[in-house]
Design a protein around this nucleic acid. Structure first.
Length: 425
RNA sequence: GUGGCUAUGGUGUAAUGGCAGCACAGCGCCCUGUGGAGGCGCUAGAGGCAGUUCAAAUCUGCUUAGCCACCCCA
């Protein structure tokens, strides 16, 4: 009888210590940015009422129809693992009466999401997003700031081939006209479309626009464009957004074919991706847009809002492809001990260092000095403190410079201060 | 949901039906209180289930998982 081997579920991964450094690096930069721009953090449950996404994200979207982990609880509640953040954040906004706080409300989040789909490059069943939502403000300057935040994030991560694509997909006033127009345009040419697009024509004609098939491309290029159908309000909004982006010197590309897969987007939509071989295959690292009707759809007042989210796994996979290796936080000092008395003294010494704010590594389980110094060497410590039987009795410590091999004897109570002095040099 | 490729110690790999080998990592020793080199040793492996065969890591089937692509998306 062979022992059963457990493994992580399909498309879900352990994030091992060697990968944590990447998540922490991205997370740290993201956190500094949102702090600067005055965003406040929100955490929402990983599980929500499934109807929240059916109504919010949209019943017709693939994310809800095909990719949502939904289930009934013992009590009969119909719940779902969140496939995206926005509906949960908006739910919290409404539930806690945040419309009574000074508007707009600027919120950010970072956490896991779940989508049931076949895993491949940059796509997992459990993945992580960092995102922001600005609720209660319709000014296009907000859209620009949201884009700017993600652009800055990727800039600080040293991405140098970023493509920011923006488009406007109109609102409930003007989009229906455009939809109608484009439907009849494609219907007239249905025979020339690929199989998928024939299906899209019935389900969501807008999605034909980002088909990659060459024969479809030719037809798409001649298709009517949303820009020409925008109502005055949407047109003005879009124009102002582009003006602000120009003022910010934020390089962007107009992509009239950019449409997104979630139902609630209105007006502005954007994506950011890395213009490299692997970056294209991976898809967008960041996506987002304006969703002026979502708050109302979910039972709140008519409220404008705008947001975006970055996929951590995609960003990290790009960082790795470029050979970036964040430095792991490491101790510059190692303490080695010999014998029981020394071991006891060592524990106290470690505490002294903690109070001085100096990180210190030890290897209390090991006995041979050789092994311990070996370890000190492996972790790249600059100094080793050695406490043996003799030193423990004398109340002293041997300070060994790991580069020169030079050793000094220092009083135990003074060693923390002494090391602080040496590390500053 | 559909298709292609893949599966050997912890990691990376070798062996074209005939003794599963190497490197790295880990642990120990050479060296009882002084690291980086070296030597020696130890630990640890065929995703799973069937089949073909005297003999299977190797061939076949199924299954599972991973990767990649489609769909869709971060």
């Amino acid at each position: 009888m062979k022992k059963q081997k457990f493994q992580a579920p399909t498309g879900m991964h352990d994030i091992l210590p060697s990968d944590q450094v990447f998540y922490r690096k991205v997370g740290r930069i993201a956190e500094n940015l949102v702090d600067f721009y005055g965003f406040e953090k929100i955490d929402t449950p990983i599980v929500e009422n499934a109807e929240l996404f059916e109504k919010g994200t949209g019943l017709s979207t693939d994310v809800v129809q095909k990719q949502m982990y939904s289930f009934k609880t013992k009590g009969g509640d119909y719940l779902a693992l969140r496939p995206e953040f926005t509906p949960g954040v908006v739910r919290a906004y409404i539930e806690h009466g945040m419309m009574n706080l000074p508007q707009p409300l600027k919120l950010w989040y970072l956490g896991p999401l779940f989508r049931y789909e076949r895993p491949q490059a940059g796509r997992f069943r459990q993945f992580h997003q960092f995102g922001v939502e600005v609720i209660g403000e319709g000014n296009p300057a907000i859209d620009a700031q949201v884009i700017q935040i993600f652009y800055n994030l990727l800039q600080e991560l040293k991405f140098r081939h970023l493509i920011v694509e923006v488009n406007s997909i109109g609102d409930n006033q003007c989009r229906p006209y455009y939809k109608k127009s484009i439907s009849s345009y494609f219907k007239y040419r249905e025979q020339q479309l690929c199989l998928d697009c024939k299906r899209r024509l019935r389900e969501n004609p807008l999605r034909i626009l980002d088909c990659k098939e060459e024969k479809c491309q030719r037809i798409i290029n001649q298709a009517p464009q949303m820009v020409d159908y925008l109502c005055d309000q949407c047109k003005t909004h879009f124009k102002k957004l582009l003006e602000v982006l120009d003022d910010l010197n934020l390089p962007y590309h107009l992509n009239p074919l950019l449409v997104r897969g979630l139902d609630y987007y209105t007006k502005t939509v954007f994506e950011i991706w890395d213009d490299t071989e692997g970056g294209k295959a991976l898809g967008a690292m960041v996506g987002g847009g304006r969703y002026d009707s979502l708050v109302k759809i979910l039972g709140g007042k008519d409220t404008s809002a705008c947001g975006g989210a970055a996929g951590l796994e995609r960003i990290i996979s790009e960082l790795k492809a470029r050979g970036v290796k964040p430095l792991e936080p490491q101790s510059r000092i190692f303490v080695a001990q010999l014998g029981d008395l020394a071991k006891r003294k060592t524990l106290g010494l470690v505490e002294n260092f903690r109070k001085e704010g100096i990180s210190i590594a030890e290897s209390l389980g090991k006995d041979s000095l050789k092994t311990q110094l070996n370890r000190a060497n492996k972790i790249g410590a600059e100094y080793s403190l050695i406490i043996g039987q003799k030193e423990a009795l004398d109340g002293t410590v041997i300070v060994r410079d790991m580069h020169s091999g030079k050793q000094d004897i220092v009083r135990m109570e003074k060693v923390a201060k002494e090391m602080q002095r040496r590390l500053k040099k």
